[in-house]
């Protein structure tokens, strides 16, 4: 069984994010980048399926400029067998990403596509669902348990009311939640071996997909800074301030 794992290059989660002075976007200059944590969980899950003898091949795919090869190498070091970079310098919408991935799904015919539920930079939470719609494959999103049984995959989903388990016919799309697994650390020997694993570069333009943007980023502003609080001298003052200043009670 082939498993396809799309991954995204994002700002490292340890980095303190700053907005550009002109509010056009987040400042990425000289910022440490990493594999999106949910995508890393997806890679780990695929590698575990391979180690369990269920998956036969794990393919990592990323869309972006040359720099996303770093994250593909990380996926290879974690245990993916080969990697595909869909090369583009454009920042693509989730729908365009999903359409490119659809082409890869058609080419590779994976039985399972495991994606992160969302990326920590744009927080869209759309790509997996869109890919499911485009390919007509069933989807199990926000997975906290993934069990392949025969020609089905049972996905336990974290939903507001608790845990919901769905059974999907393969091929299927799964998106990972935080508690699905704890990704391993890439070992130094495996980082070295990853260098020799195949990484194929395919220009995005070659896929015949309309990549024109469907949405436009207008403005990015940092969260408002919290003002310092005060200590009031008693309950009466507190009530007075809640009523007249904060206007939260009447």
């Amino acid at each position: 069984m082939k498993v396809l794992v799309p991954i995204k290059r994002v700002i490292d989660y340890n980095v303190k994010v700053r907005v550009k002075a002109d509010n056009s976007n987040v400042d990425l200059a000289n910022v440490k980048m990493a594999i999106n944590p949910f995508c890393e969980i997806a890679v780990e899950e695929a590698v575990r399926l391979k180690e369990a003898g269920i998956a036969t091949e794990v393919i990592a795919v990323s869309i972006g400029d040359k720099s996303c090869q770093e994250q593909l190498r990380t996926a290879l070091a974690l245990g993916a067998d080969r990697a595909i970079q869909i090369e583009t310098d454009e920042k693509l919408d989730a729908l365009n990403i999903a359409k490119l991935l659809q082409k890869i799904v058609e080419e590779e015919q994976p039985q399972l596509v495991i994606l992160g539920k969302q990326s920590i930079d744009s927080d869209n939470n759309q790509t997996g669902q869109m890919l499911a719609a485009l390919t007509g494959m069933p989807q199990g999103t926000f997975a906290s348990v993934v069990k392949v049984e025969g020609d089905k995959v049972n996905v336990t989903r974290e939903v507001d009311s608790g845990l919901q388990t769905v059974s999907l016919n393969l091929p299927a799309i799964v998106t990972t939640d935080l508690r699905l697994n704890e990704p391993r650390y890439a070992s130094l020997p495996n980082i070295m071996k990853a260098k020799r694993k195949p990484l194929v570069v395919k220009p995005a333009a070659d896929f015949g997909v309309d990549l024109s943007p469907r949405s436009k980023l207008i403005k990015v502003v940092p969260p408002a800074t919290r003002k310092a609080g005060i200590i009031v001298d008693g309950v009466d003052t507190l009530i007075e301030k809640l009523r007249n200043e904060a206007k939260v009670i009447s």
């Binding site: 990493a34 770093e70 190498r73 990380t74 070091a77 650390y185 890439a186 070992s187 130094l188 980082i191 070295m192 990853a194 260098k195």
Partner: peptide, 15 residues
């Protein structure tokens, strides 16, 4: 190989 070295250092620093 700077790229591989960076990956070594990243993985160690995370660990």
């Amino acid at each position: 190989d700077q790229e591989m070295l960076n990956q070594f250092l990243d993985s160690i620093s995370k660990f």
